[in-house]
Structures are given as C-alpha cells and as structure tokens.
Design a protein around this nucleic acid. Sequence first.
RNA 1: GCGCCUCUAGCUCAAUUGGCAGAGCAACGGACUCUUAAUCCGCAGGUUCUGGGUUCAAGUCCCAGGGGGCGCACCA
Length: 470
Amino acid sequence: MAEMRPIPYTFRPTATSAQVRHEHGSIEDGAETGAEVTIAGRLMLRRVQGKLAFGTLQDSGGRIQLFAPAKVTPEFTDFCELNLGDWIGVTGEVMKTRKGELSVKVQQWELLAPARRPFPDKWHGISDPDLRYRQRYVDLWVTPEAREVFIQRSRIVSLIRRWLEDRSFEVETPIFHPIPGGALARPFTTHHNALDTELFLRIAPELYLKRLTAGGLERVFEIGRVFRNEGMSTRHNPEFTMLELYQAYADYSDMMELVEQLVSHLAMELHGTTTLAYGDRSIDLAAPWRRVTMLELIAEHAGVELDLEMPLKELRAHAERFGVPVKSSYGPGKIILEIYEKTTEAELWGPVFVTDYPKEVSPLSRDHRSKPGFTERFEGIVAGRELCNAFSELIDPAEQRARMEDQVAQREAGDDEAMVVDEDYLRAMEYGLPPTGGLGIGIDRLVMLLTDVHTIRDVVLFPTLRPEQF
RNA sequence: GCGCCUCUAGCUCAAUUGGCAGAGCAACGGACUCUUAAUCCGCAGGUUCUGGGUUCAAGUCCCAGGGGGCGCACCA
C-alpha cells in the first residue's frame, strides 16, 4: 500500500519540469539522453497499461510525463496505485517516448505526501469561484491561469521595486495607527491590551511617509497592505496593497511623468509592448498620457459647464438632473466631484490624468498655484477605474490645520469617513515640509490592468470572504 | 444595505408541463508494454444548502433563513 511507505523528511530535486523541457526538449523521438534528473511534484494524470505506466507530474514549472515500465520502476504496483494529487519525487533518465513525449523514466520514486482528499475533475478543474478562493491550495494546481496571474503579480511588484530603488528608498511605517489618516475611509479598529488603547489599522501610509520627508528622507516609498472597512466588489477588497511614494522638491506634474514612465515600463517588461488587451478592448499605455481637468471632462461627458463660483442652488440642480444625491453638508467642490464620478469616471477608457480637484475634497493637497478653490491633484484613470491618486503635497501647517478642522466639521455633520486632526503630523509640518510630490498606486488594480483580469479576487491569493462554517 | 440570479455525488454537469435523482471524471475491484482527458469490464457513491408550506406526488411551485455570483449603493 502506498500509504504505508515512510515519508522522507527531505527531498532534493535537481531540476524542474521546465528545466528538463528546456534542456532536453529537442531530442529525437525514442531517444535516451543518459542524463539523470530528480524531480518532484504532484501526480495529475495517470495511464496504466498493464506492465507499462505513464504519469503526468506537475510542478512549479509545468507538467512533464513520467515513463514507468514494470521492469524498470521499483515497486511498480504501488506506483500504479498512486492517487491523482499525490506528491511524489522521481529520479530517472530523461528520454522521449516513441510517440514523441519528453519523459522522465521512473527508476526511483518516493511518495512525499498522499492526497487524502480526491482532487477536482482532471479536465474541468474547479469552476465555482467560491471554491477557488476558499481552497486556493487546490485552485493553484488545477487553474493554470490563476497560478500564472500570481507569478505575474510577483514579477510586477519586483519590477516596481527595482525601478524605484534606483531613484528612491523603501521604508516601512506602522500599520497600527493611533489616528486614522491619509485617506477618506472607514478604518478597522483594534485594541492594544498593555497600552489599553484603541488602535486603527492604517487606511493609508501617507502621513507617516510625509513625516519621513520632513525628517530628511527626500525620496521614500512603501509597498504595503492598507485596510478599509468598506464594501467589497470586483474592484474592492477590505485589505489591499498600496504603493505610496514621496519626492521632495517635486510637484504633481513630476508625479504624472513618473506614473506614465513606470506603468509603460512595466508593460514593456511584461508584454514587450505598451498596447495591452483589456477585456474586448485595447489600451495604449505609452507616455505621455492625456492631461485634462475634471471640469473639462465633465463638460465633455456630461455636456455641462460647471465651476466652483456657480451658486450652490444651481449646482444642486445639476446634481439632481444627473441623479446624484446631495447631502446638505456638501459644498460646491463635493457636488462637482460627485457629478464627475457619476457621469464621467467610468466612461474614461484612458489612460488619462484627471487634474485639478476641488480643495473641499482634497484635504492633503496643496492649493493650485493659479486656480483658486482647486488643488494640484490628479487621478490616473485607466479602463474606467482609478489607478492612482497624487498631488503636490500641502506643506503649510496652518492651512493643513484648517483643512483638518474642516474635516472634523464634516465628521460631526455625519460623514464618518472624514479625517480627524493629527497633532503630531501638524507638528512635523511645523518643523518644515519641503515642496513635495506624492503618489499612491493601487497595486491590485495595476496588476489587474497588466494581466487582463477583471476581478480583484483573481489578483489576491486569499481574498476576504465570509468565514466558512464547518 | 437593496435588487436580480444561483446552490443536485469529491469535481464538472443532467433530470420534459410537478411523476422512481442520473452521467462523465475521481475513488474502489479487474484486464492491458508507447499512453496523452488512455481504453475496456465491474462496483459503489446523495440531508438535491437548511427549515417550513402547497400537493396524491416537490430537485422542480410558495415562504423564511444560509452560502455564492453580478449589479446598485458604498468606496476619492
């Protein structure tokens, strides 16, 4: 019985299936190489034919055939009785069958782990998305595209790091925040027993990274998980990965250049082109991306010229016409943003930089140098989705205090996503924050874009799900 | 949170207007020395998501609950 075999404590493969294929793939049909390899993986298919058995071994590099004649393979009967899904290690000569299939001749083999549960259908795999996400350890074996996306994700993050390390340096800032800040979102809360204090899981690393800029780290970045206690969708997971970077002496135009350079670089590295398929359309990510103000875009898409000077009554009337609900606390900037999001954002295929956001909805960005009431802020939109958010950072502590106090007022008016005053951050600003450009990119959405995936759960290994009942 | 859809064997799916719950793969037993989702023979496998209801009869219709998907809302 296969299950009676002792399981070794270690196993040392000398090659992966991909390496075997790479080194010996071109030998002639029926040829033997004399080269011995040791490989390990899961038995995914099995074809036993009396005194000759074939298996398909899958490992991190793909699949390769096992060739097992009874007179060569030790404990041949046990080998034939392996279950689909069993982990095995095999040593033998690399050869090609008479029918032309590159194979490893099973001259030694060991059971490394039996599959005690039946594997999914060998042809159909798993199609139930819930099963795929809950049992990713099975999905990764039977859904090759899933595995491929996560390999690509790893590659993308690695490329981003390499690209940024040439110009910047990476830091780690706290995930526990005594005050939630840096974005407008509801936080998760937790409690520290020894300090007997409430803590928040960060909704953004922004305010800590800018403290570092004030501390003299002129160019910093962080790639890390952030947490927002909000709804889930194909584009939202409660925990997701954000890249934020800050660059002293730079402004939002510099950030636009950085984004288009970085994203087109990634596309070239991954696909060798900046023109990508996304769904049934294509996107050209080559720099430069279009730059256009929010008000101009609203005019283009909604056919209405809005501005901050317009009487509130008139703006509300426009909002109502577009079916945008307006709360009494909304000022003109918020109403304009809502109209933009309702009528325009999803229509933008892009890539496009939507610039000049109203000050009212941008509590951390610096006043526009020439347009009163607006800030030097932009979002990069691709395929109707926000990919990044960036601005010339607000550096005046008095102005920052006023903005935070305004946020507190909004909070008191019932907006539980509004910010609170962060005295320590203000203190850091009072010591002096140089002119700074800052940028945030949603890594999950970037991976979706670069891998042509349409739900965030397919780029997160273990997406948040309702706990399973056992 | 709201709306629509969905849930049948380990996996992928069937089951006519309400009429005996089935197949393929996997598993189990057997045959087979060049297979490729091997093939062939045999065997077994079920709280049809849960609980109520209508009916002579419910996988199917109704109600409530649960899981999931999508959309909306929310989410810069």
